[in-house]
Design a protein around this nucleic acid. Structure first.
Lengths: 211, 211
DNA sequence: TCACAATGTCACTATTTGGTGACATTGTGA
DNA sequence: TCACAATGTCACCAAATAGTGACATTGTGA
């Protein structure tokens, strides 16, 4: 029973569960300690405070999806994909991985609400673990034939993120079922089409310019 | 000084300002009454409670953008536009109108966080005032040539919404400046390109099928 | 004039929150 | 064996919250 390491883990686990279930608004010293069945003073003693506890939590291995998880393969396999396939795979993978991480979603919600030391801390932790936008879509970061690639990328990633976050509080969006696999297949289909015609356009254009 | 109607307005104004400035987390009976310089018991007496006060607030004329505001013209002018131009205009208009309504943004954030009687109420009020997704993009709601129009629409609208909400707590997204006009011009450019190649694709396809 | 309802003020409760100091219990190394 | 640090429990504090009952003031219609 007297095991500080175990108590630390209990607190982190409780924080994560509480975050996933009730959202960041319900996260607090009192609620976490209550959920963990532990006195709240131990949060201060072992972590220093709420901020440090959550920082530890965000370092948990399965908290942020890695590039490999999103792509669903090793980095060698990733490198061997052509860019069109890779874009599609990573974007779909991001949907898949984010959808099964309610606590992670909650951090994204939090970042949308307020900016403070805590959210900065958690944002930093995310970037450290490879969940950077640069990795998400391998379109590159420059203009191709006058097309603003980062802007298009931003719009697609944002769209994905919003729909995932929205699924917590809405059943449908524009008629698309956000709680069924078929609904998400429709989103994936839209992404595929966009990627497809997008590359067609770029290649077509550069072809005609080469002639 | 003794004017219940004026007091009601003061409370609604205070709620709106507080929402815009501090976000929905700071909205409460005490804070609103304090800001309005009025006793909190009057909120109960005049509105019944916080919920009813906010419902009234959401009925304010300038709270939700109308279709005409987004399109930037009368409904006759809207009807006379071709679909490509109309899509582009409305989407850009939505960005413009939503960007200058911080209190409205806050409701969207709220809807993203939790679902309760309050958010349902506010959501309903929004739909009543014409801010329905069906109006936002006149693409129609069916499949064209096997392309899932509602899904593509959902992705674009979601992307716009997320980027606007994100601008509260982030300076940039994927390198795009969310606080400068030039940054939003880039987003608009991305939308235009997507609309453009999207319609090209659809028309091209139906052309080739007609042959 | 004056009764009375409308309007507004104040004081209080109960609950929750973050935070701290004092104490009890346990294990372990000297 | 025993001292002592590590671990854990408990009781408190100040502040903020939602909500309510009692009271004071004002205007107005009979």
């Amino acid at each position: 029973m007297r095991n500080s390491e175990e108590t630390r883990k209990k607190l982190i686990r409780a924080a994560k569960e509480l975050l996933a279930k009730k959202g960041f608004q319900k996260i607090g010293i009192n609620s976490i300690a209550r959920k963990a069945g532990v006195d709240k003073v131990l949060i201060y003693r072992y972590f220093g405070g709420l901020q440090e506890l959550l920082r530890e939590m965000a370092k948990t291995s399965d908290f942020w999806p890695t590039l490999e998880e999103m792509a669903g393969g090793t980095s060698e396999e990733i490198k061997s994909m052509d860019i069109r396939k890779l874009s599609s795979t990573i974007l779909k993978g991001r949907i898949r991985e984010l959808r099964k991480r309610p606590a992670t979603q909650e951090i994204l919600r939090w970042e949308l609400m307020e900016r403070n030391e805590l959210t900065d801390e958690l944002h930093f932790e995310r970037e450290s673990q490879g969940d950077e936008l640069n990795n998400l879509v391998p379109f590159g970061t420059e203009n191709i034939n006058g097309v603003d690639i980062p802007a298009v990328t931003a719009l697609i990633i944002s769209g994905i993120t919003y729909l995932i976050l929205r699924s917590k509080t809405a059943d449908t969006f524009n008629g698309i079922d956000l709680h069924s696999e078929s609904g998400w297949k429709r989103i994936e289909g839209a992404i595929d089409i966009m990627i497809d015609i997008f590359f067609n356009q770029i290649l077509e254009k550069s072809d005609s310019e080469e002639q």
